[in-house]
Write a protein that binds this DNA or RNA. Sequence first.
RNA 1: GUCCCCAUCGUCUAGUCUGGCCUAGGACAUGGCCCUUUCAAGGCUAAAACACGGGUUCAAAUCCCGUUGGGGACACCA
Length: 517
Amino acid sequence: MIPISDWNGLRLILSETKLVGSISIGKFLVNTGQTYYETICSRRGPGMSQVRVRFAPSPTGYLHIGGVRTALFNWLFARHEKGVFVLRIEDTDLERSTPEAIRAILDGLKWVGLDWDEGPIFQTQRLAIYKEHADRLIAADKAYRCYCTEEELEVRRKEALARKQVVKYDGRCRTRTGPAPSGILPAVRFFSPQSGETVVNDLVKGAVSFDNTQLDDLIILRSNGMPTYNFGAVVDDALMRITHVIRGDDHLNNTPRQILLYQALGYEPPRFGHLSMILGIDKVKLSKRHGATSVLEYQEEGYLPEALVNYLVRLGWSHGDEEVFSLSELIDNFTLENITKSAAAFNPEKLLWLNSHYMKMADAKRLAGLVVPLMKQRGVLSEGSSLDQTWFERLVKVLQERSRTLLEIVDGAEPFMTDPVTVDPEAAKKFLTEAIRPALIKLLRTLERVSVFEHDTLEAAFKSVLAETGLAMGKLAQPVRVALIGRTASPGLFDVMSLLGRDRTLERLKRAIDLIK
RNA sequence: GUCCCCAUCGUCUAGUCUGGCCUAGGACAUGGCCCUUUCAAGGCUAAAACACGGGUUCAAAUCCCGUUGGGGACACCA
């Protein structure tokens, strides 16, 4: 339940995030949704057939990865068709909607770069519109007031289930006459036709027909005045002139009911396209036990938004053999015809591969900026400390080639950030041996005479030690690596030394030599 | 219980609508080799699929029917 006072907090969130285009949020919240849409629609000339799509999440939890894909497909379709992408928040479930969830949705969309042209529009701001539409249906004998209580209905549903009968409203208030029972706030039910069939010409599934006897008299307006999903969506999609409803597969069964509502209301239905579900790696519905299912978790785990977008778009859509797409390539090539009908399993490995690809492509400066907060968060960099930007970007540059996520950069950067280095005991045992000690000392002496710590001069110095000692590159490199970084894996040695700089390199070498004693 | 959807390598998919070009292509992951100062990356290479059964046809991954399997929906949730 969102108390009215919280809506001020929400407005704060919205203006803070500045996610809205030309229409200011403050103004929107002052306006009713109705006047807003009257303005929009009056701006549109007659005969315009511009594509208008929407993403309409309910703010009852984090923004799910499947929701992001739905939003992405809508967004790409809108951009490809030079149409309009509307964001509508379906917050009519007062029990479960929260301002935090609204924020999570906006933040999530913002992170993956899906911007909207209109909205966010809140259904709870438009209650008068739904009521007016419901009244219209009642007046036309297409809907009726139902005085059955939730408890009664629950009992009947359970009975039907127990007797293995069809779970359907029995229609007892259809023909109710006489005075209204006192003390009961009625809900409004739709008179659902009980004969014929309703066909959905789905853009991805093809023609799907439903026997109308399967459909029952659904509630369109709850006793508390809130519209139910099917009604709110229909009224809004009609009024907002949505041309294509692209949404999850789980709504296919709702579509015939919605088409019937469009017809009763005298509105023309949009085109529908139902996207198959995203399943977990084990082929069952994606859930928390598969790991991250909220978009923002991917941000926290060091993924790049373009990698997630690229991964998600290939889950259920394809363009020949291509795997890697820039945003503009996606916009150019995205069409509804190439959407797959079957459900897809989420494969974290492939996402990781795409992420490492984009990590290599990315500008080091940008990555550096993304990594710093993560380092602070993980204690690799202390809160107040300042960084040499140029130096840090150089470090990021050598790490980004071998990191699959930003978190791996953080990990790889760690030995460069703090002194003294933590040396892995296993590595020390294997490589910092008595036998190699003389060579390390020789290297130390040689490096002491090197004044400019750059890749090429360091390489020359190192090679001279190899020549003197007769050691193979590999024999000396690993012990030195362990001495400098404390681990057996790192960027190239000469990059490491030049990044560490003269003082720290010599110091770490000395310390390793002492350690062997 | 009722209704709806789906079915190509382990996974994402191309091919299916408009049957022959399919000895089924690509990508991730996996194995091998090469490169190599480590780890990655990269290059080459291998293994790996038309769920099953019936039709239709000269010809079926592709069209039709059935079976099986998987998924979804049946709320005063969306």
